[in-house]
């Protein structure tokens, strides 16, 4: 039998071995011993050890060395402390706390030693101004590209579409209802890194609805490789 038949009574086992039970509890446990193979085997197995625990002065002294201050009740703070740092070997427990610390330390390590050393990469800025020749940009297409668009014919309340097309007629960006203009008719458009290959691109802004003036304007820009 590898299990106690009545764990409610079986839990008294060590208190029984140490003669620490009340008369009623002791009787209850002894009746239990007559019936429970597991508990009887356990007490028999530890019988000699229990005798030493109960009667040997050196053994008692070994326990006495462990802690001298026994009079204090456990305070709230010491209970809180014992939740995080129980009276066990520091390396064995509490695993959860050390795991949590690891979780905190790793992001800090990443932030300081990995991300902190990464250079801040600048974006390539291209200004698209009416009647100017093609804007030429040198640089890596691995950078983000910021298009600063000036559209003097902008009319508040009108709808515009905006498209960016490569020289091979691939549409890079198209917004049927572009609403990025401010009241002065300027807009900023960010094209994420890697979206543009070196080459010529045309940007077309077309009035779709509610206009009184010019309905379409084209801009061009050239990106050269390194």
């Amino acid at each position: 039998m590898d299990k106690c038949t009545d764990p409610d009574i079986g839990r008294l086992i060590h208190a029984y071995e140490l003669n620490g039970l009340s008369a009623e509890e002791r009787e209850l446990f002894e009746v239990h011993l007559l019936d429970c193979e597991y508990c009887f085997k356990e007490v028999r197995q530890m019988e000699v050890v229990s005798d030493l625990l109960n009667a040997d002065a050196d053994v008692k002294y070994a326990f006495g060395e462990a802690k001298t201050d026994l009079s204090l009740k456990t305070s709230f703070w010491s209970r809180l402390k014992s939740m995080f740092f129980p009276d066990t070997s520091w390396y064995a427990k509490p695993a959860l706390v050390y795991f949590a610390l690891l979780l905190l330390v790793y992001p800090a390590y990443r932030g300081i030693f990995v991300d902190g050393k990464r250079p801040i990469e600048s974006a390539t800025s291209i200004s698209l101004i009416p009647d100017r020749s093609v804007e030429t940009v040198y640089g890596s297409t691995d950078n983000d590209i910021v298009l600063n668009i000036v559209y003097p014919e902008f009319e508040s309340g009108a709808d515009y579409s905006l498209s960016i097309v490569s020289e091979s007629d691939d549409t890079i960006f198209w917004d049927q209802k572009f609403n990025g203009f401010d009241s002065y008719g300027t807009a900023v458009l960010l094209i994420p890194e890697g979206r543009l290959e070196p080459g010529v691109y045309s940007v077309t802004i077309k009035g779709v609805r509610g206009l009184s003036g010019i309905a379409e304007r084209k801009y061009s820009f050239l990106i050269r490789g390194k």
Partner: peptide, 23 residues
């Protein structure tokens, strides 16, 4: 047994504390 008690008193002090009170 004394070796084990000393070891246990370090790693599981609560037990030693209770036994002391029981003594």
């Amino acid at each position: 047994l004394i070796d084990c008690i000393r070891q246990l008193a370090r790693s599981y002090n609560r037990y030693a504390r209770l036994i002391n009170l029981s003594y």
